[in-house]
Structure formats: C-alpha cells, structure tokens
Design a protein around this nucleic acid. Structure first.
Lengths: 250, 250
DNA sequence: CGAGTGTTTGATAATGTTCAAGAAGCGTGG
DNA sequence: CCACGCTTCTTGAACATTATCAAACACTCG
C-alpha cells in the first residue's frame, strides 16, 4: 500500500469549501454530520488519471466524494472496446447504492487527476429524512436519470444531436456546482473519451465537433468549450433538464 | 373510470400460482406477507396492448406485478421517435423505486394484453431483511443491470451483436421464471418493438433477423424464437449473465 | 373477400468507420 | 531555448453499416 498523495495545502482548503457547499445543496447538515464531514474531508487524497477507482463487480460499500477532477463509469468489452455510461463531476458522490450488498455494474475510472474523499458519513440506510440523505438520493436519482438520457442519445439520436445533448448535460451539471463561467466550461479530456461516451469513432466525433464550430453553435479553445445558444442547442437535441438538477435549484 | 376487466377464472388461478412462485424466488414469505399477497392477487386486472401503465414523470408510488404479458419502459422523443429502455417480463414487479418521492424517468407501456396486480404489500422502505424485500431489491437490481446492458449494446455493438445480446437477455430472464421450452420462447410483439429497443430501423432489424436465421443461429416460427447455440451466441455478443439472475438461482 | 397491419425485398442515400498520414500541441531532458 | 518523442487532433479517401423510401407480399380478422 503506497502512502496516499495529499492535495497541496491551499488547494485542499479550496476543495474542502467547495465540497462542503456541494453537500449542502439540500440544506444545512446537522452538527453531527458537519463533524463527520470535516473528518472525511480531512482525508482527501489524489489519484492519477487512469486509475480505476472502483472495479466492476466489487461490492459498493464506501461512498466517495469527487472533490476535484473528472471520472467516468465505464465498462470494457472483451475485445477492448470501451463504453462510458456516465460522468462523475466535481461535487458528485459515487460508489454507493441504496441496495444492500450491491455490486458495481461498471467500474469507476479517473479521467484526470482526481481528488476524492471517503464519505462514510453518508446515511447508510438512506432512510432518515435529513438534508444529507436527500442529497444522497439526489445523487442516485441523477445517476439514473443520466443513464436514461444516455440510452436515448445512443439509441435514437444522430451523432450531431448526441454531442450537443451531452454538452448540455455537462453545462447544466457544472453550472449547478458553480463550475461554469458564463456559458463556458472546462472539458479536461480527449475526444476519445467523448467518443466512448457517445458510441462514435474518434474521427467522427472530431468531424462533428468541427461542424458545431463551423455553425457557431460552440466555440472551443484548448479544453474549454463555450455553448453559444443554449436555447437553440436544447431544441436541436431535444434536451430536457434533468429532474434532479431542477430540484437542487429550489 | 371504466370497470376493470378481470382475467377469466381458470386463467386467473394459473396466473396467481405463477405470481406466487415468482415472488417466492428469494424464499418463503411470512404469514402476513402471504395474506397481503393473496389480497393483492385477487385484484388482478387486464389492460389492453398499447395502454400506458405508468406515465413518464408520474410519482412512483404503487408497485405492480406483471402476472402476464409483456411491457416496456420507454420514452417518446418530441419528433415521434421512440426509445425502449428495458422490458418488463411476466413475474417482474415494476413501477416502484427505493427513492422517496421518486418520479418515473420513463413511461411503462403494455406491449401485449397484460395482467397486472397492484402490490401494496411490497415492503415500503425496503429496509427490512426478508425474502420479499430481497425480491424487491432483485427487481431494482435487474432494472439497473439491464439498463447498463442496454447502453453497451447501443453504444458499442453492431446491429448483429445487439440483436443476439437482447435475445439472450430474454432467454435467460424467461428461463428464470419458467417461461421457456427448451431454448425457445415466445416473443409476442412486432419487429418494430425490437427496433425501438435496439436503436435500429425496422427494415434493418428484419434483415438482421434473416441473417441469424440463414446462419442457423436462431429459428423462428410465428412469434416464438429458438436459440440454437447459447454458447456461441453468448460469445458473439459478449453476453454476461446478469447478476440478479444468477442470484435467483441459489 | 377486403382492410389493415406486419414482414420482406430492392434500390438508393445518408451516416459513420477504418486506415493512413500529416500537423499541432505538450512535456521532458539536454 | 531547442530538439525530441509522444499524444492528440485533423484530413482525405475508401469502405461498411444502417437508414429511407417504395412497393410487394403475407397474415389475420371481421
């Protein structure tokens, strides 16, 4: 067991604040929860891009908060193809389930350097009515809802629509945790990742991105994207706001 | 409110027996549960093909047992395209969620005449450790696992692989509730349904089916299918047994 | 028998993949 | 600071897969 890498001190402070705000989305925590949360957040550590955070088939025991970076839920086929199911964004909690003795149907995989904190403080049975439990349910709800979107994209949308739809999902989820600037946000990974999420070849993803740029629907510079007309993009891709996000905005 | 159509008497008896066996998959029920179950099963009613059993967005309150017939979970896009997420097979319970105040992310829709029975007897919080609760968790687990399979099929498999993979899913799920004969089973719906599940055009689904027949991988007659080499089919489509099914076989 | 629905067929078009190679970007070490 | 190697992005051309359209055929049910 190699010693865990810790985030740099000032960075850690920023992330703790971010994490605390994120977990508060459903309302203030109790004194006990605050204390447990502080303990958990003091145990943040960094994993490198490419790390498998949770292996497929493993018992889903301890939840983690993703304080920083991007991760995905994915599965590898026997011939090396990869399918990404959904994305884990900063502020999300992953690696748990309401089911007792649940096994992971897919592995969780770090796309970038990630900072994660174990969250043993999440209400284990999820049955108590408290802000933290509601937050946990929101996470599960989001996961389910994102999965449904993913199926519709893959099954019934063109490459063009799929890409737009996914970008909108990113935008609104990041916006909910304050990680957008105006209508732009960072997408810190390669086009291959997009491809494996959208069920496309890298080449075609690239060409579709170019088309969106040509049509002035998006702008990119480096790894940040700007969406130029949310309304129009939503119409093109038949995008519906995810319920668990609208809930969070009350 | 039109009066509910009841199944015919002798048919009803058969279905009750089937339903009881299905709910027993995780072990015998308590006396109380048996009694509640009897009450529920006496309230079976029939819905016609094409009925929306649960509308998208509705509160997921009361679980139903599908005693007979086939249903799907689906969503309609604004332009009329349809995506089927997953199938509800006889013996399955649908229309519930572990989440408090959960909303349906998709509508449940009867593919055939269906016989359904309300299941208010399902442990509401799902937290008690009993055979019935375990059964309920198995249902949720199956739904999740089927959803993951669906994403992989749509995202990373060819039409040919997708179709085989779905047929295998049907086979093993039906086999678990005793609705197969040898390696054949009834698939009582049109190719359009398959297409909307697999994200293909009807024409292409048809041609792919023909190919499977030509290659002697399947046989069809009327609406029943026979899989001719489970092993080979599983290899071609990278099929993995769904965990919630293997559990049921203990 | 006739209407309606589902299946099959052929022709053609659109969408997306593969392969191969060049350009651009980026971190590393000299 | 540059040179190098590596990865990612981009491009073109050929090809494969899947969709669309239109029509014929088959089956079922009244």
């Amino acid at each position: 067991m190699t010693p865990k890498i810790r985030p740099e001190r000032s960075e850690a402070e920023r992330l703790r604040t971010f994490a605390r705000r994120s977990l508060n989305r459903r309302g203030p925590l109790t004194e006990n929860q605050e204390q447990a949360l502080r303990a958990a957040l003091s145990d943040m550590h960094v994993e490198r891009a490419g790390t498998e955070l949770i292996a497929e088939g493993r018992q889903l025991r301890d939840p983690f908060l993703l304080a920083d970076g991007w991760a995905v839920r994915q599965r590898l086929l026997s011939d090396g193809r990869r399918q990404i199911f959904s994305f884990v964004l900063p502020g999300d909690v992953f690696g748990f389930s309401a089911r007792p003795d649940a096994l992971a149907f897919y592995s969780s995989f770090a796309l970038t350097h990630v900072t994660v904190a174990p969250m043993p403080c999440l209400p284990p049975t999820l049955q108590q009515a408290c802000a933290l439990a509601e937050f946990a349910w929101d996470m599960l709800s989001l996961e389910e809802s994102a999965m449904a979107s993913q199926v519709v994209r893959l099954g019934r949308q063109s490459a063009y629509e799929r890409l737009i739809h996914l970008l909108l999902e990113f935008y609104y989820r990041l916006e909910a945790v304050g990680l957008t600037q105006d209508t732009s946000f960072a997408m810190p990974f390669t086009q291959e990742v997009l491809s494996d999420a959208l069920g496309l070849s890298v080449v075609h993803t690239n060409r579709t991105l170019q088309q969106l740029r040509r049509e002035h629907l998006i702008e990119t510079s480096g790894m940040t994207v700007r969406l130029r007309d949310l309304q129009l993009l939503a119409e093109i891709s038949d995008f519906r706001m995810m319920q668990s996000l609208t809930l969070q905005q009350d």
